[in-house]
Each structure stands twice: as structure tokens, then as C-alpha cells.
């Protein structure tokens, strides 16, 4: 477990130092280039406020009305079988559909069950290790003339399911 923690702890500082050293070696004005990039990053951040706002409001209503409970309880037999915490299932279902909605649902899980709870960690790993599959496929194939995408969706969604089940399983190995 120590090795695992060490790798996770070192990944960020080593990456930052590596990027800076490489930039200095190549005679880049690291600070001014950094500022350019940070400006772009802020724009992305501000851009995701509206979708997060709309979805967190809807999600709050969904939870307060008892609707979320209703859905969680109705799928409990299935989640118990795969040993997935039922509170992250709505999030897992949303993950391939919408990046904004799944991000909002992940923060909702952090707030309600705790960021370092099992559900919180599993949701974070799921969020970090899967993509918005439907959106990606729509954008990428939308740029081509191909309308018959053959096995693409099937394979991409299988990879998502593997990612979701594995997230829970790996978190159980690491953090339980």
C-alpha cells in the first residue's frame, strides 16, 4: 500500500517539475506561456458553470423530492449483485451520456456521502477513468461521411461498463 500511495503522491509534483525543466531546457519563457494557458483554463472553467448550475439544481430537486431514493431502491437487487454502492448508480448511468451532468452528480455524491467515503472515491475514479462516450462518438463521426459505425458503440459501451465495475473493484482493493 505504501508504494501505491507514493506513486499517487509523486505523480503530480514530478509532472510539474518535469514540464518546467523541459521548458527551461528548450529556452521557453515558461511564465508567460503559463499565463496564456491559465487564461484558456479559466475560460473553460467559466464555460462549465451554466451546465453545472442547471444540473445541480435539477439534481437537488431530484434528491429532495424522494425521486432519487425511489430509483436507488428499485435497482438495489442488481447493484447488490455486482457489489456497487447503489448511491453511485445514477451517476454511473449518466457518465457516458453527459460530461456536465456526471460532473454535477459526482460533486453531489461528494457533498452528501463525503469526498473520502467509499462512494466518493469510487465516483472520482469512475469520473477520471471513463469518457462521455455518446458525445465523443457523435462529435467524431459527425465530422465524417460515415453513417454506419458498425461495432463502435457496442465496443465503446462495453469498455465503459468494464470501467464502471472495475472502478468499484479497484477502490475496494485500494481503500477498503
Amino acid at each position: 500500500m505504501d508504494i501505491i500511495n507514493t506513486i499517487s503522491v509523486y505523480a503530480v509534483p514530478v509532472s510539474i517539475a518535469g514540464i518546467l525543466i523541459f521548458g527551461l531546457l528548450k529556452n521557453i519563457n515558461v511564465y508567460s506561456v503559463f499565463l496564456d494557458g491559465a487564461k484558456e483554463g479559466l475560460k473553460i472553467g467559466v464555460g462549465i458553470i451554466p451546465p453545472i448550475l442547471g444540473l445541480l439544481a435539477a439534481l437537488g430537486m431530484f434528491r429532495a423530492s424522494g425521486a432519487l431514493e425511489l430509483i436507488i431502491n428499485s435497482i438495489r437487487p442488481l447493484t447488490d449483485f455486482f457489489k456497487i454502492p447503489p448511491e453511485i448508480v445514477p451517476f454511473a448511468l449518466m457518465r457516458p451520456v453527459s460530461g456536465g451532468a456526471s460532473l454535477a452528480m459526482a460533486t453531489d455524491i461528494f457533498q452528501n456521502y463525503g469526498v473520502d467515503s467509499f462512494a466518493g472515491r469510487a465516483a472520482a475514479v469512475m469520473m477520471g477513468s471513463t469518457e462521455t462516450t455518446f458525445y465523443t462518438l457523435a462529435v467524431y463521426f459527425g465530422a465524417t461521411k460515415a453513417s454506419n459505425t458498425r461495432h463502435t458503440l457496442r465496443c465503446a459501451l462495453t469498455a465503459d461498463v468494464v470501467g464502471i465495475i472495475l472502478s468499484v473493484w479497484v477502490c475496494r482493493c485500494f481503500f477498503a
Partner: peptide, 10 residues
């Protein structure tokens, strides 16, 4: 995003 800009340009 700023750090990655450095990685890109370098």
C-alpha cells in the same frame, strides 16, 4: 492548463 501550455510549446 498553464503547465500543459508549456509542455506544448516546449
Amino acid at each position: 492548463s498553464g503547465l500543459m501550455k508549456i509542455a506544448e510549446q516546449s
